[in-house]
Amino acid sequence: MDAFTQIFGFAFQYLDSAAYLILAALGLSIIFGMMGVINMAHGELMMIGAYITAFCMYGGIPAPIAILLAGVGAGIAGMILERLIIRHFYKQLLSSLVVTWGLSMIISQVFLIMFGPNMPSLPTPFSDIKILVGGEVGFALVGAEGFARVTGETGRMPPGVESFGIYRLVMFAVAVLMVVAVWLLLRKTEFGARARATMDNPTMANALGISTPRIYAYTFGLGSALAGIAGGLFALTSAITPYFGAAYTARAFITVVVGGAAGVINGLVASVAALGGVQTILSNLFSVYIGFVGMIAAAFLILLVMPTGISGYMEKLRGRSR
């Protein structure tokens, strides 16, 4: 295997791992960072997104629209939950944990009763397009025919050539777009200003005429919509079950907390960069097993060294240097 193939593979894994963490955690980081709610039903909101995407696509709606609808649907579901229940639990980390755990039990069970334990999975988009790297090929983007030409009769890759699907890169691109969009929304719009004001000091914001309940509802809806979109994206590459989301919640939560609450988006990005990096490096140096365990261990160590998460630590450093 030549150096270029290795570097490309390394980059691909890094982006793949980062995309996974960003998508799983973005919605949660907004809800946790801005409202102080530990949303254990986050995975279930992703699951709702996955189901909406699935039903839309069974009905012939193309994937991008289906995923957007998933975001809308999950956003609405989130706002309903917020109005009915979550609004009683702002800044109460643990009560919110119990309530949302209860909600997650209810939501997944309702889906099980309504739709059964399994849904037909969806085809992965762009699965015909592949990137070939290394060996006699060098670097090539090929379709089904090109791929068949390279693999020949045996259906086997020539020595030294590695192939990559591109959907994972699409996921990364969408994840980056989502982060940028959320950042712009929070930094450059009036809603963002109000939301940040509400987060910093709800009483003051209220006194200044900001309708804090409405801001909270929208923020929760936004976080839920992001979860729904992420669920839709993941639905295209995994089995869709009522327990689809459970696997994401804990890891998303760890990512968010490692990021810290000092900066919702910066913290998340830093956390994803660090955890994804550790996973990729260790996987390549040792094994996928060590990479995975190493990522969790890294979360452990980061929390010990930076007791308020990465963003808190960075803020502290900045404060010190001033």
Binding site: S127, G165, L236, T237
Partner: peptide, 18 residues
């Protein structure tokens, strides 16, 4: 389990047909 079987869509997308 649900996480590990994601191997199949990914292997298919990467063209691992062995």
């Amino acid at each position: 389990g649900g996480d590990q079987v994601q191997f199949y869509p990914q292997a298919d997308a990467a063209g691992l047909k062995t």
